[in-house]
């Protein structure tokens, strides 16, 4: 029986890939004023960012109910007896907690393993995609679980930010608060480390920040996936993806867009590169 993979929409799996690899994605809700939107369902990413730019209200995000997770499990359990749920970092959202508790609400009998990716956006996505590929190739549950655990410390992400204001307001800024209040206009480069937002570098212009992202990816070997994603600057992302493609000729460079639930917390102009692989330098 094929193992099935479930994840939340915070992993920014590129369009079409979820269907191709048979991944079930649970949408995370975005709340604007009093209206609840399901990430990627009720609101396209474009509509969301138009709204974010126009609205004075600050959106919030909410992990769907236990019931919604349990329903997703039950639905997938129609096809399989083995499910792996890979969630967003528990330090960034309540997805992991909810995913664990939802197992008790299931109606069907099915083995459900829940793993915290300790990550987010495409770094989470690449872990999920690798697991789904293994599942599709017929790997058994325990083997896939082991693969996911090995991949968690191998999934890295760096993001060039336009502003840290959204992160600060949303309360997810973590240790990157060191970068708040800079007198000079610089582009902060943040990433995720130990499941939370971490400050890595600062560049004095946007162009240099993008070079940093390129050089970051350049420093990997044993690559099993590269993703490039933007919030509102697809042109920059395309260009960076082209440069990376020229560097990593045999690899697929996945292109995605940061979903609204994360976008609400990072703000526009975030450009990210995620790599699943081994870093040359520590």
């Amino acid at each position: 029986m094929t193992v099935k993979i479930i994840t939340d929409s915070l992993g920014d799996i590129p369009p079409g890939i979820a269907e191709e690899l048979g991944i079930t994605v649970i949408p995370i809700n975005v709340i604007f004023g009093n209206i609840n939107y399901r990430d990627g369902v009720d609101l396209t990413t474009e509509q969301f960012y138009d709204k974010l730019a126009a609205s004075k209200v600050f959106p919030t995000t909410i992990v769907p109910s236990l019931g919604r997770y349990a329903d997703a499990y039950d639905q997938v359990a129609e096809e399989t007896g083995d499910i792996i749920v890979i969630t967003n970092s528990h330090k960034l959202s309540a997805s992991y907690e909810t995913a664990v508790l939802a197992r008790e609400r299931m109606k069907k009998k099915c083995r459900v393993e829940v793993i915290d990716s300790l990550s987010a956006i495409m770094a989470q996505g690449l872990i999920v995609m690798a697991a789904a590929r293994a599942a599709k190739d017929g790997a058994r549950l325990d083997k896939i679980l082991e693969g996911v655990r090995n991949n968690i410390p191998r999934a890295h992400i760096r993001m060039a930010f336009g502003t840290l204001e959204y992160l600060r307001r949303g309360g997810r800024i973590g240790k990157a608060k060191t970068f708040l209040g800079m007198v000079l206009k610089v582009s902060p480069i943040l990433g995720i480390r130990d499941g939370e937002i971490y400050p890595f570098a600062r560049e004095h212009s946007r162009a240099r920040a993008i070079d940093y992202l390129y050089e970051f990816a350049d420093g990997f070997t044993g690559i099993e996936g590269i993703g490039v994603e933007d919030v509102t600057t697809p042109g920059e992302a395309e260009e960076l993806a082209r440069r990376l493609q020229a560097r990593f000729l045999g690899e697929t460079i996945y292109r995605s867009r940061v979903g609204p639930a994360v976008g609400a917390h990072v703000g526009p102009r975030v450009l990210g590169v995620a790599v699943l692989g081994d870093r040359d330098q520590p």
Partner: peptide, 18 residues
């Protein structure tokens, strides 16, 4: 009520750095 059960309050971050 479900959020009161499942979520945790966020700690407000300082608007200025250390």
């Amino acid at each position: 009520t479900e959020q009161l059960k499942l979520r945790r309050p966020w700690m407000v971050a300082s608007s200025i750095p250390l």
